[in-house]
């Protein structure tokens, strides 16, 4: 936590993984857009190799919260944030932190599948090449590996050079996951990854997420309460109070769904408040 000096990209990769139980620590995070506050005082400790679900109604700042962790929020002009986020004990919100390394270590899956309009193979290899894997055999090996990991390899092995846009929605989303894990990230951020998909694809992706949690720490935003309950080990409930998002309850998923401490949470998971 005291380590605020700028990390050189190549030194930073060599830093030992800390033995701290918490993979991601968020302290007093607040986000302001223009002059409007969207999130206030969020604090969370996220353990390694766990699935944390973030639930709450629309407009409570869940997506902004995720985009703070990988600093994609920098792309939105006029946004300010305060507080601290530590990923592997490195300060994320430091203006000098290496965003490229950060985003390499934190994979992101978006709500709508967003494969690049190029071949399936190129979709996966574009970032690998950028991050220094030049050998074409190695590239092909990783491509096959990650496609197998997401269960897509058998479906597309004969058309790796076809445009990724020809895949179905569920396949595109799995390709996006494959693209992200090809970089061997430690943390996966998923922003409602199933909301644009059909029930069968949702099922496949949920199973995939459960499998992935053995290797990766996963943070998933979802509107589907049943999904949160099925796959996550802990759950955070965000709630907009006067338009400002707050973390009203955070704990083990079972506890949140069985014995919520907060009245709003209790009503929300029973469907009284939407």
């Amino acid at each position: 936590m005291t380590n605020t000096t700028r990390q050189h990209p190549h030194q930073a990769t060599k830093l030992p993984l800390t033995e701290s139980k918490n993979h991601l620590e968020i302290k007093n995070l607040s986000i302001t857009y223009h002059t409007k506050k969207i999130l206030e005082n969020i604090s969370m400790m996220i353990p390694r190799h766990s699935i944390t679900a973030i639930i709450g109604p629309s407009g409570c700042g869940k997506s902004s919260f995720l985009s703070c962790i990988n600093r994609l929020i920098d792309l939105t002009p006029k946004t300010q944030f305060s507080g601290e986020i530590y990923f592997n004990q490195h300060p994320v919100l430091n203006t000098k932190s290496d965003l490229i390394l950060l985003r390499k270590k934190i994979g992101t899956i978006f709500q709508k599948p967003n494969p690049f309009p190029m071949s399936i193979k190129k979709n996966i290899q574009i970032a690998l090449k950028e991050h220094g894997t030049k050998d074409s055999k190695e590239l092909d090996r990783i491509t096959r590996q990650v496609l197998q990991d997401v269960g897509l390899y058998d479906e597309v092995s004969d058309r790796l050079n076809d445009s990724a846009l020809h895949l179905s929605g569920g396949q595109q989303q799995r390709l996006c996951i494959a693209r992200a894990i090809a970089l061997q990230p430690e943390l996966l951020l998923m922003d409602e990854p199933c909301s644009a998909l059909d029930p069968i694809s949702i099922n496949i992706i949920e199973n995939l997420i459960t499998r992935l949690s053995k290797q990766y720490t996963i943070l998933i935003v979802t509107h589907n309460l049943a999904q949160a309950r099925r796959i996550s080990s802990s759950t955070a409930v965000f709630w907009p109070t006067n338009g400002i998002g707050e973390l009203i309850e955070y704990g083990a998923t079972e506890q949140i769904f069985e014995q919520p401490k907060n009245q709003i949470t209790a009503d929300y998971i029973r469907g009284y408040r939407a």
Partner: peptide, 9 residues
Amino acid sequence: YGGYALGLS
């Protein structure tokens, strides 16, 4: 956004 999320410069 997808490109930036993969850590591309």
